[in-house]
């Protein structure tokens, strides 16, 4: 069953090594990703890819995502995006999906 972003939700903090992720219902079709980071030039593509991967795993195509990056590594970005999506969809994380 495809998930839908029902409401705006936030996960993460503005602490060092973290990223604050805000997920909103899409204003128009597609995934719009906005990244604010001091390392955007170097790691922007990598951060974007990590976000896209997580949305693909959830099967969500339409959403608006804002990231304020404070030097988060990939797995922290993954975790924060997953948490924000769960909060925005109102659904729990599908742990069995990790067994694939």
């Amino acid at each position: 069953m495809a998930l839908n972003i029902k409401q705006t939700a936030v996960a993460g903090t503005m602490e060092s090594s973290d990223v604050m992720v805000t997920v909103k219902p899409a204003a128009e079709p597609g995934l719009a990703i906005h990244i604010q980071s001091n390392v955007l030039t170097t790691f922007g593509d990598q951060i974007r890819a990590a976000v896209e991967d997580v949305f693909a795993e959830f099967g969500i195509r339409d959403a608006e995502v804002f990231l304020v990056d404070k030097g988060a590594i990939d797995c922290v970005i993954r975790a924060r995006v997953q948490a924000a999506i769960c909060r925005a969809t109102g659904e729990g994380f599908n742990w069995k999906g990790e067994d694939k």
Partner: peptide, 15 residues
Amino acid sequence: KDAARLLVYNLVKYQ
């Protein structure tokens, strides 16, 4: 609690 669970899971699994 939900966010911490995902954070710890990803950190132990990938880092």
